[in-house]
Design a protein around this nucleic acid. Structure first.
Lengths: 247, 247
DNA sequence: CGCAGCCTTGACCATTATCAACGCTGGTGG
DNA sequence: CCACCAGCGTTGATAATGGTCAAGGCTGCG
C-alpha cells in the first residue's frame, strides 16, 4: 500500500472507493501503458503537501500567482471564472482524484473553492515538473486526464449553447455521478454537495430557474428529493431523453 | 527544411507564417524543453498523409470510428456536436497547426468540416502513438496544446453561460485573430472565413441575432465591414469593454 | 439572366431573467 | 433549551433578451 493511499485511509470522512489517477482506463492514444506505476505513485506522494479545507475555503483565486499543481484527495470543489460585474460561470466541479492547475500560465485563470470539507494535495510545479520529466507513465496520465476534461468541456459547450433549462438539468443530473467517486451511486442516488446557486452558475441559469426545473422534474415523477444534498433519479430513461432534447 | 515545411511551401494558397507545433512558447509545466526537435518533426512528417478538402468537405463525423489523429496544414475547419433534433454547437474552429482527435475513445465525439479549401495531415493512431512513446518533446507539445485548448474551452463556457449577445460577439471578434495564423492581423483586420450561421452556432445564438449585433456594432462605429469575409475593428478598446461586460 | 444561398431587417412571441415575498433550517446567543 | 436570524430554497408576477417566423435584397455562379 502506498503512502498516498494511507493518507486517504487515515481520513475518517472517506473510507473506500477512491480513484487515484492510476485507475488507468484504456486509452487510445496511450495504448495500455497509461497506468501509473507504484513507484511513480510513491514519488508523487512524497512530493505532496496536504491542505485541509472547510466548506467555502479558498484554494486559489483568479489572478493568483500559480506555483502549484493540485490534486483533490477528498471532498469537492467548484472551479469558476468571474466577469467584472460579478457574473460567475462555474467551469467544473472537482472530486477526489481530479487535478487542477496543470494548464500553462504564470497566474491562475480561475478560482477554486471547497464546497464541503475537503483535502487537497499540493505540489510545487518545479518538483512536479521534474517528476514528469522522469516518468513516462505520469505524463501519459496527465495527457489522458486533460483529454477527458476536454471532451467534458465540449459537452458543456453544447449544453450551454444549445440546450433548454430542463435539458441542462437532466444532463447535469446524469453526468454528475460519473465524476464523483465518493459514492457508488446505487439505485439512481445522486449526491448533490453543491447549492442551487452553484448548479445555476454551472448550467448558465438562475437559482430560480434551477428550482423551477427541479420542481417540474419532481412533479413529473422523474426524480425524487428525499432530503437536502441528495436526489434520486426515478426514471433514468425519461431523464436521458430530456438530456438529449427528445423529452 | 523539413519535409513537413515543404508540403506547406508547395501550396499556392498559403506561403509563409505558418505555426507548426514546434513554435513552443514557454510552458510552465514543461519548463523550457517543450520545443519539438527537428528530428521529431521529421519523423512526424514521414508519418503524415495529406488530405485536401474543399469548402464543406467532411473530415470526420460524430460517431465515426476514430483511427486517426489530424493536424491542420492549411485553411480552417469547424468542429461541432449535434443534438438529435439538429441543434448544433460549434465547439471550435481549427486553423493551421491545430490538432484534432487526440482525445481518447473509439469513436469521434464530434464532426469536423472544412470551411474553406484546406489541407489536413492525417496520422494513424498506432504509429503516432509509437512516436509519442519515443519522443519526450512531442508528448510535451501535446500536453501543452491540450492545456491551452482547455483554457480556451473554459473561456467559451463563461461566454456561453453568462454573456449577452453583444458581449459574445465582441469576445469572438477579439479572440479570432489569435487563433488564425494565416494573416498577421494588421490594423484591426479580422478574417472571417465562416458564415453567419457558423458564428451563431459557435456563440450559442441565431443567425438573426448575429446579424443584428453586427449591425449594432457597425452603427456604433466600433467595427466596419468593408467586404464579405473580412471585418475591421475600428475601436478595439470599446470592443474590449463590451467583451468584458463593461460596455 | 435567373436562381439559390446567404445576409439583413421587421414583427411578434417564448423562455428565462428579474423582482418580490415567504417558508424552512441550522447555528448562535440569550 | 428555546428563540431568533441569516442563508437557502421555493413560488409567483412581470419584464426583457433573444428566438421564431416572414419577407426582401444581394451576390455569385451556372
Amino acid at each position: 500500500m502506498t503512502a498516498v493511499a494511507k493518507i486517504v485511509q487515515a481520513s475518517p470522512l472517506r473510507p473506500p472507493g477512491w480513484n487515484w489517477p492510476s485507475a488507468g482506463d484504456h486509452c487510445d492514444i496511450c495504448g495500455d501503458i497509461s497506468g501509473v506505476t507504484p513507484s511513480d505513485l510513491q514519488r508523487l506522494a512524497d512530493l505532496a503537501e496536504n491542505l485541509p479545507l472547510k466548506a467555502g475555503g479558498v484554494l486559489v483565486s483568479e489572478g493568483d500567482a500559480a506555483p502549484y499543481i493540485f490534486n483533490v484527495a477528498l471532498g469537492s470543489l467548484r472551479v469558476f471564472r468571474l466577469l467584472p460585474d460579478g457574473r460567475r460561470q462555474i467551469t467544473g466541479f472537482l472530486f477526489a482524484g481530479d487535478f487542477l492547475g496543470l494548464v500553462v500560465g504564470q497566474t491562475y485563470a480561475f478560482s477554486a473553492v471547497a464546497m464541503e470539507t475537503s483535502i487537497v494535495r499540493r505540489f510545487r510545479k518545479g518538483p512536479f515538473r521534474q517528476l514528469i520529466e522522469q516518468s513516462r507513465s505520469l505524463e501519459h496520465m496527465l495527457l489522458h486526464r486533460t483529454s477527458h476534461e476536454l471532451v467534458a468541456a465540449q459537452n458543456q459547450m453544447l449544453l450551454l449553447g444549445r440546450k433548454m433549462a430542463i435539458e441542462r438539468m437532466a444532463s447535469f443530473l446524469l453526468d454528475l455521478p460519473s465524476h464523483d467517486p465518493s459514492r457508488p451511486s446505487t439505485g439512481g442516488l445522486v449526491r448533490l454537495p453543491m447549492k442551487r446557486s452553484e448548479i445555476a452558475d454551472y448550467l448558465g441559469m438562475t437559482v430560480e430557474t434551477v428550482s423551477r426545473v427541479l420542481t417540474r422534474l419532481r412533479a413529473g415523477g422523474i426524480i425524487a428529493m428525499p432530503n437536502k444534498g441528495e436526489l434520486i433519479v426515478e426514471q433514468p430513461e425519461r431523464l436521458r431523453r430530456h438530456a438529449q432534447g427528445e423529452g
